[in-house]
């Protein structure tokens, strides 16, 4: 009585399960340069990826379908966490009543009010842009932006106004540049600095 024992079979089973979990963590290191974009209103990426249950309630509850489970390319630490993918749809956090935050059983997306939500930061890569790169007329991103974060200059070229961008992804979702989109939402703090306006590209900002 009181002796601690497990049978050999059980021990091997437990050791096997532990080894499998360890191997899964070792194998799935992140192979992405950038962390995934997140649903609106999280406190921090670190807290979110640690506490997220990967239950998929937010993915299911999203109005527009802009969320998807992150694949193994983001590493085991973020596996199946919800990833905001503007290529799927834009985020409508002001219209849907924050459906993902309501769906989350761990209450992880209620940290920020609507007015302060920033999902990321859109950035124009000029060489891919139809206007900047090929001189063709196109201002779909400008037309689609609800926040006035994209302005057009007198030559019809789009410029970012980073302070106004919420990262909702409408511009990326609608961009028709191929094979790669010219305007892409980057995670905050990871926005490229060259070739654009977001990081102070040196161009004068055109007024409309």
């Amino acid at each position: 009585m009181g002796k601690l024992w497990v049978s050999r079979r059980e021990f091997l089973g437990m050791a096997g399960a532990g080894a499998a979990a360890a191997a899964a963590y070792g194998l799935f290191r992140s192979r992405q340069d950038l962390p995934p974009l997140r649903p609106p209103g999280i406190a921090s990426e670190e807290e979110f990826s640690a506490a997220c249950l990967r239950c998929q309630e937010c993915v299911r509850g999203c109005l527009t379908g802009c969320l998807e489970p992150a694949g193994p390319e983001y590493g085991a630490g973020k596996l199946w966490t919800p990833r905001f993918n503007p290529d799927l749809a834009r985020c409508e956090f002001e219209l849907c009543g924050r459906a993902c935050a309501k769906a989350c059983p761990a209450s992880l997306m209620s940290a920020v009010p609507d007015a302060e939500v920033r999902l990321g930061q859109a950035f124009i890569t000029r060489k891919r842009c139809l206007v900047w790169g090929q001189g063709k007329p196109c201002l779909i991103c400008y037309e689609r932006c609800r926040y006035g974060a994209i302005e057009a200059d007198e030559k019809g070229r789009p410029h970012m106004v980073p302070e106004k961008c919420t990262g909702c992804g409408a511009c990326q979702n609608t961009c028709i540049a191929e094979p790669q989109k010219a305007i892409i939402v980057y995670p905050l703090g990871r926005v490229p600095e060259d070739e654009g306006d977001a990081g102070g590209g040196g161009r004068k900002r055109g007024g409309v």
Partner: peptide, 23 residues
Amino acid sequence: GIGLLWLYDPVVIVNRAALFALS
């Protein structure tokens, strides 16, 4: 700050399985 609950919680496992199956 290291989350393992998603791997071990039984209700979460089935919830994810159901929603994965749906999508």
